[in-house]
Design a protein around this nucleic acid. Structure first.
Length: 420
DNA sequence: TCTGGGGTCCTAGGACCC
DNA sequence: TCTGGGGTCCTAGGACCC
């Protein structure tokens, strides 16, 4: 058996964990630039606030209902997530961290009868030690564990856990879910399935496998088997090495100046390079892109990108920035209101497998030492105080984060004070 | 005024080879 | 008049996830 532990309204719950006055109040967390809603407490959901809704479209609603608004604070959420994992590891030997707020637990060493008790204990422990409420769903496959988790959240809210043991219980659970609620069914497939008369997850589970394979994809076929209790999605014990790394941001306000975009691209490239070094990987290819704001119908639109092959795989900030600047030169067009810029590093290989070019003149050993010193310094200060070739680092393109909470768990100067 | 960011996997079709 | 067949590799784009 497999359990899926999912933190309820994770980002909103993190904010709430450090401010008891937020209890029972509507709380939302916004995406970068305070753009869209990306987490909602139950109270906020009850007000009809939708996921991914642009914040500027609901200003009135927020004000009228005294909704507590937060800018996203990923340092805090990342740290809270680790704390939850640590607790989960005390219960089972094998967990798979699926996302920042979800973990699969391997329950094969536990007796079937006790699983509900185990789930309840896990739930109580996590909330007691972190303040984060979680839901636990148990099933014979990952997909069924997902479905059970959804059921626990929607139908057994007070209990918070669900284990569909018998065939009848599984069918009841699947009949309770819309076909679009199934893990792996997105907008397109949902539409297609509804058109063909499959309304619930149970309808889908009874669909002919051949038909699914023919009209959808092998991914859907796997999902179908998972719904029927046949495991098809393998266990990922260790996080796989990433295949590409992307750093991109919308600007706080529209940008026209090339030099400002240069700064942004340089900073994004440096961020990618740092992520590479952290994983001990090097990139053989780099991709730079810039674009205007597609929502501004009045503006002329421009989307451009460039792929650059690197002569030698690298994770050096300065080298990557050099190529990123070249790429930007090739795509930048004056006269547009730019909204976003980004960098992707691709074709990643382990640091140990670099093939030096025949005419390579760089002193890579020296450069490596420099990068190590840079990472160490920035880590010690908790922010990027040493930066690469990015001058005039103003706030012209800085993120908007008007409602940022403190780094309660990662900065000594921002600890919660119990008593003054 | 104001609409996120970071990933994976699969597939179809083109290029290329013998 | 008749114009092969089979295979691999790569890439862009779609669909999906959180």
């Amino acid at each position: 058996m497999i359990a899926l532990v999912d933190c309820n309204n994770f980002y909103a719950s993190c904010e709430r964990a450090f401010d008891p006055t937020l209890k029972d109040k509507p709380v939302i967390v916004l995406s970068n630039n305070d753009g869209c809603v990306i987490a909602r407490s139950d109270e906020a959901k009850a007000l009809g606030i939708k996921m991914a809704q642009p914040a500027h479209m609901i200003n009135e609603l927020l004000k009228a209902n005294n909704v507590q608004v937060f800018s996203s604070n990923y340092t805090l959420y990342g740290d809270m997530s680790k704390r939850v994992h640590t607790i989960l590891r005390t219960f089972v030997e094998r967990i798979e961290v699926y996302s920042i707020d979800e973990c699969f637990l391997d329950l094969s060493n536990y007796p079937y009868q006790d699983l509900t008790t185990l789930a309840l204990t896990i739930r109580n422990t996590v909330i007691q030690q972190t303040g984060i409420p979680v839901s636990v769903g148990i099933g014979s496959t990952k997909t069924l564990a997902k479905m059970a988790n959804r059921y626990a959240k929607k139908k057994k809210k007070e209990v918070g856990v669900h284990y569909a043991k018998t065939k009848e219980e599984v069918e009841e659970m699947l009949a309770f879910a819309e076909v679009g609620d199934v893990w792996g069914i997105g907008r397109q497939h949902e539409k297609f399935l509804l058109q063909n008369g499959f309304n619930t997850a149970l309808d889908l589970a009874k669909a002919p496998e051949e038909w699914v394979r023919k009209n959808m994809t092998v991914v859907s076929q796997r999902m179908l088997n998972e719904l029927r209790g046949v495991s098809c999605i393998k266990w990922e014990d260790l996080p796989a090495n990433r295949k590409n790394i992307c750093t991109s941001r919308s600007f706080g306000s529209l940008v026209t100046s090339k030099s400002v975009i240069k700064q942004a691209i340089a900073a994004h490239t440096a961020a990618c390079a740092m992520k590479l070094r952290k994983e001990r990987s090097c990139a053989k290819r780099l991709h730079v892109f810039i674009r205007t704001n597609p929502f501004r119908g009045k503006d002329s639109q421009y989307f451009a990108s460039r792929d650059i092959e690197l002569p030698v795989a690298t994770n050096s900030s300065s080298e990557l920035i050099k190529y990123a600047m070249k790429g930007l030169e090739l795509i930048f067009e004056p006269g547009y209101n730019y909204q976003k810029a980004g960098v992707i590093v691709l074709d990643l290989i382990p640091e140990t497998q670099i093939q030096l070019g025949l005419f390579d003149k760089r002193d890579r050993q020296k450069e490596k030492q420099l990068m190590m010193a840079l990472d160490k310094t920035n880590k010690a200060f908790g922010k990027d105080i040493v930066r690469y070739g990015v001058h005039d680092y103003g706030n012209e393109w800085a993120l908007k984060r008007d409602h940022l909470s403190k780094s309660y768990t990662t900065r000594l100067d921002q600890l919660v004070q119990i008593k003054k």
